[in-house]
Nucleic acid binder design. Sequence first.
RNA 1: GCUGGAGUGGCGAAAUGGCAGACGCGACAGACUCAAAAUCUGUUUUCCGCAAGGGAGUGUGGGUUCAAGUCCCAUCUCCAGCACCA
Length: 799
Amino acid sequence: MNYDFKAIEPKWQKAWEEAGLFKAEDFSDKPKFYGLVEFPYPSGAGMHVGHIKAYSSIEVISRKRRMQGYNVLFPIGFDAFGLPTENYAVKTNTHPRIITDRNIEKFSMQLRKVGFSFDWDRTVDTTDEDYYHWTQWIFLKLFEHGLVFRNKALVNYCPHCKVVLSNEDSQGGKCDICHSDVIQLSKDVWYLRITDYAEKLLQGLETVDYPENIKQQEINWIGKSTGAFVNFRVAGKDDNIEIYTTRPDTLFGVTFMVMAPEHPLIDRYADEITNMDAIRAYREECAKKTEFERTQLVKDKTGLKIEGITAVNPVNGEEVPIFVADYVMMGYGTGAIMAVPAHDQRDWDFAHAFDIPIIQVIEGGDIEKEAYTGDGQMINSDFLNGYDNKKDSIARMIEVLEERGIGHKGIQYKMKDWAFNRQRYWGEPIPLIHCPNCGVVAVPYEELPLRLPEVEDFEPGTDGKSPLARIDSFVNCTCPKCKGPAKRETDTMPQWAGSSWYFLRYCDAHNDQAFADPKKLAYWMPVDWYNGGMEHVTRHLLYSRFWHQFLYDIGEVPCPEPYAKRSAQGMILGADGEKMSKSRGNVVDPLDIVETYGADTLRTYVMFMGDYGSAAPWNDASVRGVKRFLDRVAGLTDLITEEPVQSLESGIHKAIKKVSSDIEDQKFNTAIACLMTLINDIYKKGKIGRDQLISFLKLLSPFAPHITEEIYHEIGGTDYLTVSAWPEYDEEKTVDAMIEIGVQVNGKVRGTVLIPKDAEKEEALSLGRANEKVAAAMAGKTIVKEIYVPGKILNYVVK
RNA sequence: GCUGGAGUGGCGAAAUGGCAGACGCGACAGACUCAAAAUCUGUUUUCCGCAAGGGAGUGUGGGUUCAAGUCCCAUCUCCAGCACCA
């Protein structure tokens, strides 16, 4: 067959769509399969080859599931709010709505050209008011349940993007959008209480099928630790400094305390602190450092002793000095620590720099040289003396703290509440109203969606306010409660809002009464298999699990976890092995590949590149190799016989078995390799039975659906191969009657021998001995032991 | 520092403890061609050897085993994520 992919591909794409082959059917009796990929941000640059790889895994699995008789939901949509579009809007003075529509159209066209089997009837666009209506609705539910709060605190602020960023969006002290250094600003902003869900987010991981590294990354990000809160009295005052420690067993070794520069106690005693000027200067110095600098200068501990006040160790009444130092963070624990230089390296470093005494309370190590963090006999510790491990001494210490009312057991999480706002235009308006009489009031549900007002000028405000703040008709409103004059919140929601629930909307994309019909949610949820990038593990994945768990708690969704299974693709690097980027000039445009080699080649190539989860560089020559393979597939039509070719039977059945299981295991590369091996064999035989060819085409169909459909019709098929039954294999036929196994002498392979597959030990051993090379290797030696592992190996141990 | 993962040909990579290097790329040789491209056939871990054949070989060093890329201990390097988290 002549392989004219330029004609074939659009032809079948149109035919499949018109036949509605990819439409998911609500409430079908067939078993359901919900396959999900992370919907794209429709940037102006169009699709990246990374999108192709990310979508191809679920694409292949969805196509296989349809052939296996499943009712498949494989949807796509667009996560279209966000800064790149807005920045481009500012630059070109074009409304972001226009840019977004244009980009969505481009992406849709590109996705169709690759032949992805999406159900286009369920497409969502997060910037559509029929969609963000429900994003705002969920936000109001969160507000209603006390999970939205406003707080003036130090926030991560990107001076370049002019927005407040969440902790998740400023990892490593860099802005997630523009990679500038993030600074700390004190600002009054909205937060979502994700920390209330820390424990559920942690426990939920035990119920889902995620790869270990993803689970670990989320566990680390949540950062649970158990320890104790302990109150240190301010000497001579009726006032306490609360600290958090994971090592309450070392309380007798406390020789000083350290506070974060921002700690409020410092201001409270400003009058009594004799070196307050120096402390103010130190604070200013710290405030100037970026997060990056603060974490880079790990070695050189800076700090200052607070003169004029001291603290009292509650277990032994010892008075200890208080220091201020920026290695203690206000955002974790209580912002103050007890310092035990003998058994904590940071405290040890600090004690040496400031000439503070060190008291050892656990035997072991050499505290002259470094802090000792291991286990050992407790010493110098009053009632703990004699305990010999952390576990017991911590438990005992917590008992005593609680008995004496000076402390209690506590749990801390590193995860912080989600700073939920952007001072920008292109996002969902936050549906809250500030009323001088009633305080913060929710926009009534019936007034949703709260539409983004039309503006002329999207430029962010220089005063740290959103452009919405400049629109009086939007800002000024009446309070829903007291009907008095009030002002709307002008911040918008962050990029991650819309994507935190989109998988629910796909279940019922056009509902105007609810975010989705509960019956449809009950039918489709949870997502059976979700593929996406590692970069979203501590952002989108965590956020959307949080929203979903909340919706479950208020009875809006049928399952506690949204995704039953998660996988992640490896990055496609440029041909030079570097990350693809415009500046390096190593970017591959997937549409160029579709033009030159066809969509089937592109799809098959990205799945054949290597291990799906690992990064792999692009290689044009290998793309041509895959095209060559498809050319050979097209050529199979010349080899057809009506009768099946007996000598191919076992190879075909083996391939059915291997391709079926490899797809499930995401070993797409070896599935394709197996089909290549089979086609090499077919060409060697020079012929293939018609039905055998159809089985081959079915196995290849999820990867290269167009060419296989074309050949199927070329050889007389009248229905669609794309939704035909997945082939079955006969276990009997996958096993050869005679098999070749290796023969070893003293573990070294000396030859091979052909033996019946279920040969008895004696028969196999004598056949092995008959092998010339084996016999030569054993000549003149005594056989000590003979090993026969059926189907695997023969080994003679000789002396 | 902590967590997760990876080190195998010239390259991308395969190998439920059982013949290391499947499959693809590239390279080399041959066929076809006036020639080239495309296509087809063959060779291709490495060293010694004309060959038959033999030796070595999965980051490094040990160990378990009849048998180790795979399991155990130690060690080095790289990738990803987190990180003064008390």
